[in-house]
Simulated assay, not measured.
Amino acid sequence: MNASILNAQIQLSSEYCETHRAQKVLVGRTAICKQCATEILNKAHQDHEIEVNRMVREKHFEGAKLPARHANNGFRNYLVENNGQQNAKQQCTSFTKDFNEGMNRNLIMVGRTGTGKTHLACAVARNVLQSRKYARYITSEDMGNEIANAWKKADDNESNAIHRFTEYDLLILDEYGLHDRYENRLQLVHKVLYARYDQAKPTMLISNMTIEELQKDLGDRLWSRFQHDGLVTVECNWEDQRTGGAA
C-alpha cells in the first residue's frame, strides 16, 4: 500500500535538469531532479558530520585544560637550536605516534625551568586530542588539591576524584615535586599514578628534578611500575629560554 501511495505521488515531469540532463520527477506539485536531491542530502549529511566533529573536538580540547599560554603549542612551532632540543622533540613525536597507534608507554621529562618542557607536553596533548582521544593536563599541586578537596563538593569524594584522573587516555602531570609537598597531597598524586598503572593508562610526568631525584621521590615500587610497559625519558638540560639564555 505504501508503495502505491508513493508511486501515485511521484510522477515524471515534463521538465529536465540542465545540470544532470535528466528528466525531473513530480513530488506533489514540485518538479525535482533526483540526482540534485541526492547531492543536497549528501551535502547536508557531510555538513552535519563536520559540525559534530567540530563540537567533539572542542569538547576534547576544553576538557584537556591546556594552559592558555601553551594552548596553540605544537611540534612545528617548537624552537630547535641544539641537539638536545632536537632529541626532545623527536622523542615526544615518537611517543605521540606510538600512543595514537595503541602503544601505551609512559614518558618522563625532566630538566631546568624554561627549557620548553610544557610546550612539548602540550604539543603531545594537541596531537592526541586531534586523534579524538581524551587527554588532561594538570600540575601535580592542582591535582593533589583537587582530590583532597573533593569531599567539599556534593556527591564527590577522594575515590571519585582519583577515578576521574584515571579515566583519561593520557594524563600529563606537570611540575611534579615543585609545590605538591603539603600534607598528604603527594600521596594522593601517587594514588592516581598507581591507579593508572593498574588500568594500563599512560602518563607523562614532567619535573625540574633530575632522573635520579625523581626515581628516589617516586619510590622503588612506583618507579618500577612506570617502566613496566616501556618508559621514554627526556632530559632538557639547556639554558632557560625565558631569560634569554643560550638555547
Rank of each mutant, 00 (worst) to 15 (best):
T30G: 00
G144K: 04
N73P: 03
A135N: 07
Q130E: 12
D98A: 08
Y168D: 07
M143A: 02
E239G: 00
L188K: 05
G219D: 03
K191M: 01
N157K: 05
A135L: 01
E212I: 10
K24S: 04
N100G: 02
H70A: 12
S4N: 15
N208V: 08
E62P: 03
Y168R: 09
A125Y: 01
V80Y: 05
R221H: 09
Q46I: 07
Q9L: 15
N149F: 12
V128E: 05
A3L: 14
N160K: 15
A195T: 11
V52R: 15
T30C: 02
G84I: 14
E146V: 04
T210N: 00
R221K: 12
M209A: 08
H163P: 01
K34P: 02
E18M: 06
S14W: 12
N104V: 00
H179K: 14
T115L: 08
K152I: 06
T96W: 04
E81A: 13
S140V: 08
R112H: 11
Q241W: 01
Y137R: 06
T210M: 01
V27P: 05
I40G: 00
L173T: 11
R54S: 12
K153E: 11
T115A: 07
K89F: 09
S13H: 12
A88W: 04
V124L: 02
N208I: 06
H163E: 15
Q241A: 01
D156E: 13
K97Q: 13
Y197A: 05
A31M: 05
F61I: 13
L205P: 01
L222K: 09
V189I: 10
E49S: 14
T233N: 10
R21K: 14
T96I: 06
Y182T: 14
S14Y: 13
N237P: 00
R57D: 12
G102L: 06
I211P: 03
S4G: 14
C122V: 09
T113C: 11
L178S: 03
N82G: 05
T233D: 06
T93E: 15
G74Q: 08
Q9G: 04
R105E: 03
N72K: 11
A200C: 05
I211N: 05
I138S: 09
V27T: 10
N72E: 07
H119F: 04
K59V: 05
Q91M: 01
H20P: 07
Q85E: 05
D217A: 13
S140K: 05
T38R: 10
